[in-house]
Design a protein around this nucleic acid. Structure first.
Lengths: 347, 347
DNA sequence: CTGTTAGCGCTTTCAA
DNA sequence: TTGAAAGCGCTAACAG
């Protein structure tokens, strides 16, 4: 196996591998270190030809600023942490993508942590992440351990809880009511005239709340004994298939409601493999990113709750909150969600 | 809007908000700062009752170590950066999840960067990320700008390029040949007896290479003029639908090969909505995470290339490389991939 | 096993 | 507009 070329070459030029510091740049540019720092971060404070000299020195030396040192001195890390249950097949993917795009554009870097739907794990991650002194923390959900809440509440860094609502946010919240979502869906389906329902969910807390609320609302309309299959999180296509398979043993419902789009995809696959016509034999409803789902099923129905849209819009709202960091009051921006259903009218 | 409760309360206890340092902990524990540092990071170096005193002091003070300071002093950041094209519907999701799980378990935190398939953007991100002095960098792909390569080559931090192969890796590579993948698939399908093919890809570089190689190999078996639809990255279900729609105008192929599983899902959806039987009327082939796909299509065929498996196994290999950081030779671990196809035998 | 000394590379604060 | 001094909070290296 060949030796690493570049590394060996660099050995031939002794000491040039030693990392270049701001002081080296200053020496080359013929100015004080502080002037280099200013030229780099607040160029409007130095004369333009000084700035030019510095820029050239930076290029000549191959200087890369050390943000650990900078952060330590200034207590600003330009780092935002995002904590999510999971990234695979995730209902959060779009939110995260948009959020990261915005943060990157604003010069922030993103530390990602995966909690696997465990608040204990979230606590550990928060603990560890706090050590990096992030300039902001985004948490999925509003349910956390006591320790997490305590740590985050007493700190002075902005915290945004997303994808849920609560009366006592740690700091800011952008989300919607999963209970309201479930109830809204139930009413929509009843209006459509469906009689026999089936519900499939993974055991993530928010998905379960949506589904339970749905079932309650159905019950209050006289539709009881709704089959309810719960699968292990995270949502997979296979989960959707299995859910439908199990459910179908006790007769096929007219409409199957899923806790997420991924599950709904799986139900579609299973239906196809059983020769069931969608929506002729069974209608299927998902939950998640409308911007994707709406395109996939051209004739789908959409159920709306509240005022904006999950995904990009929510992320935009979130960024706006970060921008208005000065405002230290509690804030709750409501986030809307979309549902996709392949139902009778879209046949 | 209510004032933030906790923040106001903490105002009542002046100065306690000022961040606790290691020196404070040392004072409370009645030891030297260095001893606190040791007790925290290398407890085996201090007497157990000293460690206990320190632990109590940490709890009493609510101390959170400042990793910026620690990193600066030790030049170890316990940070690993991962750069990917995208996170949404991503073929990388599983790799990333497994990788992060492993890294987190080993005490590393993960900085995520999204390049959107742009090497220029990758370059900017690398530049910025290097400022954080990560202990390792993972890059998707082996195609980078000159500047990126230069920066990464001369640095002393481990770099792992994944999901592709190359003769001149920056440091380490874990991947497979996309050309070989394409050719292998072509031969597999020809062995199966298919005559009329269709190919749908998004315009991501690796997907295109797989598809082009497939088409070349088909040509060398006398199958020319294979319909080839290219859609804009990233892959979406809608893209798959559109791809099949366009393709079908010039007659339905016996088998449609897609550059990713997401696209294949879309093709399935479109086929269903057109009343096409899969695999009776048209077989569909995806590419990506076998562990998911294999479960979804129980009777699928599998095509293998090389030796391991994309996803969790690849991530494990990757972590092993990090662990063996001492070995500074070039390394190329080959990574195998799986294909899923719903074809005639699985009818 | 524990403590002391001297920075890590940058920015804040003040002075020029 | 620029510079000098004094740390930020921690750990390496050595001494005890």
């Amino acid at each position: 196996m060949a030796k690493k070329i570049a590394r060996n070459q660099s050995v031939a030029i002794p000491e040039q591998t030693e990392s270049v510091t701001l002081i080296d740049v200053a020496r080359v540019a013929g100015v004080a270190p502080m002037t280099v720092s200013r030229a780099l971060h607040r160029p409007e404070l130095v004369r333009s030809d000084t700035a030019r000299k510095v820029r050239e020195a930076v290029r000549a030396t191959g200087y890369v600023p050390n943000m650990l040192a900078g952060g330590l001195a200034s207590s600003k890390s330009r780092l935002v942490a995002i904590l999510l249950p999971t990234i695979a097949n995730s209902i959060f993917a779009d939110t995260v993508q948009a959020l990261m795009d915005g943060l990157t554009a604003s010069g922030y870097q993103t530390l990602l942590g995966l909690t696997g739907y465990s608040t204990a794990r979230e606590e550990e991650l928060v603990e560890a992440i706090l050590g990096r002194r992030p300039d902001g923390i985004v948490l999925a959900g509003t349910s956390h351990t006591e320790a997490t809440i305590k740590r985050l509440t007493k700190g002075k860094i902005p915290v945004v809880e997303i994808w849920d609502l609560t009366d006592k946010p740690i700091d800011m919240v952008i989300g919607f009511s999963h209970e309201q979502v479930g109830a809204e869906v139930a009413r929509h389906l009843i209006r459509k005239g469906y009689q026999r329902f089936g519900v499939i969910s993974v055991d993530d807390p928010r998905g379960l709340r949506r589904c339970r609320s749905l079932i309650n609302e159905l019950a209050s309309h006289g539709k009881t004994n709704v089959p309810f299959e719960v699968l292990q999180a995270p949502a997979t296509l296979q989960g959707g298939r299995e859910g439908l398979s199990r459910m179908i043993t006790s007769g096929c419902p007219e409409v199957v409601v899923c806790s997420s789009d991924t599950l709904a995809q799986g139900v579609l696959a299973e239906a196809a493999s059983r020769g069931l016509n969608v929506p002729g034999d069974v209608a299927v409803m998902g939950f998640g990113d409308l911007s994707t789902a709406a395109h996939v099923y051209p004739a789908l129905s959409t159920v709306r709750v509240d005022g904006a849209t999950i995904g990009k819009n929510a992320a935009a709202a979130l960024l706006a909150r970060f921008a208005a960091e000065a405002d230290k009051d509690q804030v709750a921006v409501r986030m809307d969600t979309g549902f996709s259903i392949i139902d009778r009218e879209s046949a």
